[in-house]
Design a protein around this nucleic acid. Structure first.
Length: 580
RNA sequence: GGCCCCGUAGCUCAACGGAUAGAGCGUCCCCCUCCUAAGGGGAAGGUUGCAGGUUCAAGUCCUGCCGGGGUCGCCA
């Protein structure tokens, strides 16, 4: 139930009638006609831009169209007023019964209120996290994980068929480094001095891997050449790292549907086939790249490489798929991997990358565009840095010094719910400050607390009503006589609730889960405001003498709670019933 | 130098191409015999970095600058 689209349907139908009657030309394109909440409540409940959008193509003055449309709309019982304003806006006042009906449907639909079918069952693949299997997840990965998971939930809520996928980068040189690092820990487990030289991973998290290797292989790998153990140790250590990463994700409440391995692409011919497909399109050639302008590397030498003609699909320069020694670059298996996703029948692909992969966006889009014949859109969301603070001071991290902050550190200190919510209070492409003290603060400048508090207040009212012997289950509330909700402050609250289904659509269409977090903050603010007005005006308190009136007021409060629960559900945050 | 992201109130940030650009913090004033004051109401605070352009309408789209960050073959 989306009141805005209902009223838009009415506007479109009325415009159709006007065309039928000759007031408007018949061939007008109505796609730009919108029905929106006005910024200023004094402008009414909804506004449409129809007259302004149609004035030019129809060759009529906007106010004339607006007035004719207003007359039409007034015939509908839902419309109490239609006033032409400003440059040609048509401001609509709606019957209170509409808002009452909306509260009722929120109560009846529960946390499904706002669910829609705008995704039309399209198969979308959301690839996120994809952290290298060489160590535990750190804060940067955490934000990507939270974002991807919330986006997946948002799209599923909005009618997409969502697959969450993790691409394991287990095919490059970094897993060899992992193996060598683990091997040193294996030697350490045998009481030998580990030679953790520059370039190896120094982290303590590999000590258990060394011990596990000892348990499995005994001393059989000691004093053997790398060619003897590298492959086995690599596989063993990678598997343990992935277990660790899965545990980290679980801490955050993130679950993947599919784990795809880069390494598994090698030797299957998939990479060769993908490249051959591009070659058949004349998009692969042998050539030499120009050195980057302005900042030429010291050791630049022109080399002939196998290149992908990504410029044919919007990139700035062509990109190598093979290194000068003939081995695949990282890009080649990634092309094959995305081709694989296309072939699995996804209608849309979404990749969530760290901001440092920004330079990779155009070439990946070019590859998918070429391989899908332009059929499958790829949206790449770049996740900006998280800056950590403690007591207002920047928290320095250094991977080299081993002082990086892990996902586990963050979740153990702040909790999964707080971590998730805070990380979604910013657009993905803006940097985020995460202050360990502020996120746990119980005050209104902490959005998590503020939203949870609103929900707790509703539950407090429900308890109170129950204690007074008033039935407040959702079915009873939905059946209550909501005409008791006549105060302007109460209708404002209901109108805010009415925006929820629309907000979800906008957020889903733009792949912007942060909108949900901001909306919830506004919704909570409205509830706190209404609550406090009960201090001055006893008739606005939720619990009243008359049971019927109480039920109507609580129906409104409960509808807020329902939306908060639904919204937090999309963010992956558990609503609390009571503040501690 | 090329490409990408960011630039909005003193600070941190919102705003699906719509009307007089909104919140929180900070500053100032007010509200608890009353459902959790862990809250609320109000005041002050703006040339949306600059200059053009498109549009009935631009913080939003396009072009060029300025400032900050990221990135730029043989890492992933």
């Amino acid at each position: 139930m989306n009141l805005f689209s209902d009223i838009r349907d009415l506007v479109i139908a009325s415009l159709g009638e006007m065309a039928g009657e000759g007031t408007l030309p018949k061939w007008l394109d109505l796609t730009a006609v919108a029905v929106e909440p006005p910024r200023d409540a004094a402008h009414g409940d909804m506004a449409t831009n129809a007259a302004m959008v149609l004035a030019k193509p129809a060759g009529l003055p906007p106010r004339a169209i607006a007035e004719a449309l207003a007359a039409k709309l007034m015939a509908d019982p839902r419309i109490l007023g239609a006033d032409v304003a400003g440059p040609g806006f048509l401001n609509l006042r709606l019957s209170p019964a509409l808002w009452h009906g909306l509260v009722r449907s929120a109560l009846m639909q529960g946390v499904n209120f706002g669910r829609s079918k705008i995704g039309a069952g399209l198969k979308v693949n959301v690839e996120f996290v994809s952290a290298n299997p060489t160590g535990p997840m750190h804060v940067g990965h955490t934000r990507g994980a939270v974002f991807g998971d919330a986006l997946a939930r948002l799209l599923a809520f909005s009618g997409w068929d969502v697959t969450r996928e993790y691409y394991i980068n287990d095919g490059g040189a970094q897993v060899d480094v992992l193996a060598r690092s683990a091997y040193e820990r294996y030697r350490e487990a045998h009481g030998l001095e580990p030679a953790i030289v520059e370039g190896l991973y120094p982290g303590d998290y590999l000590i258990p891997v060394g011990e596990a290797l000892k348990a499995k292989y005994g001393d059989s790998l000691l004093d053997k050449g790398e060619q003897y153990w590298l492959s086995d140790v690599r596989e063993f250590a990678t598997a343990m790292m992935m277990d660790m990463i899965r545990d980290d994700l679980k801490l955050l409440g993130v679950q993947m549907d599919v784990y795809s391995s880069e390494k598994a692409l090698y030797g299957t011919g998939e990479i060769e086939a993908a490249i051959q497909t591009l070659r058949d399109m004349d998009l692969i050639y042998e050539g030499t790249l120009e050195p980057p302008k302005g900042k030429e590397p010291e050791d630049w030498e022109p080399r002939v490489q196998t290149l992908f003609r990504s410029t044919a699909h919007g990139d700035d320069v062509d990109r190598p798929v093979q290194k000068s020694d003939g081995a695949w670059t990282y890009f080649a298996p990634d092309i094959a991997y995305h081709y694989n996703k296309v072939k699995r029948g996804f209608d849309q692909l979404i990749d969530i990358f760290g901001a440092d992969h920004g330079g990779y966006v155009k070439r990946m889009k070019a590859a998918v565009s070429a391989l899908s014949g332009g059929r499958v859109p790829l949206d790449i969301k770049l996740i900006q840095l998280v800056k950590l603070y403690k007591n207002g001071e920047p928290f320095k991290m250094s991977k080299r010094a081993g002082t990086f902050v892990t996902l586990r550190d963050v979740v153990e200190q702040a909790g999964a719910d707080v971590t998730r919510f805070v990380m979604l209070t910013r657009k993905n492409d803006a940097a985020l400050d995460f202050d360990f003290d502020k996120v746990l603060e119980q005050s209104k400048d902490n959005p998590v607390f503020y939203v949870q508090y609103a929900n707790a207040r509703v539950n407090s009212v429900l308890r109170r009503a129950r204690d007074a012997g008033v039935a407040v289950d959702d079915a009873t509330l939905a059946a209550a006589d909501l005409t008791h909700l006549g105060h302007e402050a109460e209708l404002t609250m209901a109108k805010k609730i009415a925006e929820w289904p629309r907000l979800v659509e906008i957020a889903a269409r733009n792949n912007e889960p942060h909108r949900v977090a901001f909306y919830l903050y506004e919704l909570a603010s409205d509830l706190h405001g209404l609550w406090n007005r009960g201090n001055d005006d006893a008739s606005l308190r939720f619990v009243q003498e008359d049971a019927g009136v109480t039920q109507a007021k609580i129906a409104l409060a409960r509808a807020v709670s329902v939306v908060i629960s639904a919204g937090l559900g999309i963010l992956g945050v558990t609503p609390v019933e009571e503040m501690r």
